Simulated assay, not measured.
Amino acid sequence: MPITSLTPSQGTVGTTVSINGTALGTTVSVNFGGAVVTPTGVSNTLVTFVVPASAPCSGQVSVSTNLSNGTRTNAVPFFVIVRPTTTGLDESCLPAAGGAITVFGTGFAAGGTVNVGALTPVAFAAGGSNTAVTVTAPAHTPAGCFDTQQVTVTTAGGTGTAGTTLIDYYNAPDLTAATLTPDTGPAGTETTIADGACLISITDVTFTDSAATAFTGLPYTPIDETSIVTAVPAAAAAGAGAFTITTCGGTSGPAAFTVT
């Protein structure tokens, strides 16, 4: 049995493979599945070759060598690992603190890493789903209110195509310096909240009245990333109340409004 093992025993197109064994010095070619490959190196105990472009996308193939006397050695298995692909995410945005995301695609069962932009890759174990993997994306603070990061998956089969799956990171909205015009009035009063920050992609506007009743999902009109127009709920109790604004980046602190 001239061939004893392959190093590595799995890989992708372009992988250099060492065939280990004995009496291999007269090898003239390598059989890789249905392909015949010219070796890149031959000695009595070692033959090297490169996995050809004709290799199947994934699966097991047999590897043997052809000797100069016309005989063929025993065959040993080599597993071709598929290059992963990414087709989508279960989230379109994350807060700066990061969070759980599920990446959809193919070729994940071998294990590897999820790569979010240039952030630290997140490892995931082999043996899970081949078409979905859930990881905790790392924290990232955008330079502005938000930025976009590409998501790829790397396994032993390679790295999926970049630029096809994207996620946005958002900084939290901020009403610390906000002004309300007016900032007092009866229930139902329309007011402009100005001088805020990152008031973009708003998912909720809430008013909490003096009775601690929270009115969520208030209608609003955006002006720019610092200002919106909204209104105090008609059922709000008199006294000190406050607006908060929620985006993918989180929920702002309160902006006070007194209901008269």
Rank of each mutant, 00 (worst) to 15 (best):
A123D: 06
V259K: 11
S58H: 10
G160H: 06
V80N: 07
L67P: 00
A240I: 04
A97G: 13
C57L: 15
L175M: 14
V76C: 03
T206P: 05
T191N: 11
A172V: 15
G217W: 05
A256P: 09
V122I: 13
T258L: 04
S29T: 08
S227A: 14
N20Y: 00
D209M: 01
T7M: 07
V47I: 09
A236D: 04
N69K: 01
C145L: 08
T71M: 03
A23Q: 15
L94V: 01
V28Q: 12
F215M: 04
M1K: 11
V17T: 07
A109P: 15
G250D: 09
E225G: 07
Y169V: 03
T260S: 06
G98N: 01
T106Y: 13
T26W: 05
A187S: 11
A100F: 08
P142Q: 11
T230A: 07
A55I: 01
G127A: 04
V61E: 10
A126S: 00
T161M: 00
I81H: 09
T258H: 01
D209R: 01
Q10Y: 14
D168K: 10
T244A: 02
F243Y: 03
T179H: 14
V82S: 15
T4N: 04
N130T: 06
T86I: 10
L199G: 06
T73P: 14
V61W: 13
G157F: 01
D147S: 05
A256D: 12
N20V: 09
F78C: 12
Q149C: 07
I202N: 15
S210C: 02
N44R: 09
A118K: 02
N66Q: 14
L199K: 02
G157N: 06
R72F: 02
V151S: 07
A123N: 10
G196M: 07
T38G: 13
Y170W: 00
L199E: 03
D168Q: 13
G105S: 14
F215A: 04
M1P: 13
I200Y: 05
G112R: 09
L119G: 00
T4R: 03
A255R: 03
G59Q: 06
T16H: 10
I81Q: 08
F124T: 12
V122L: 07
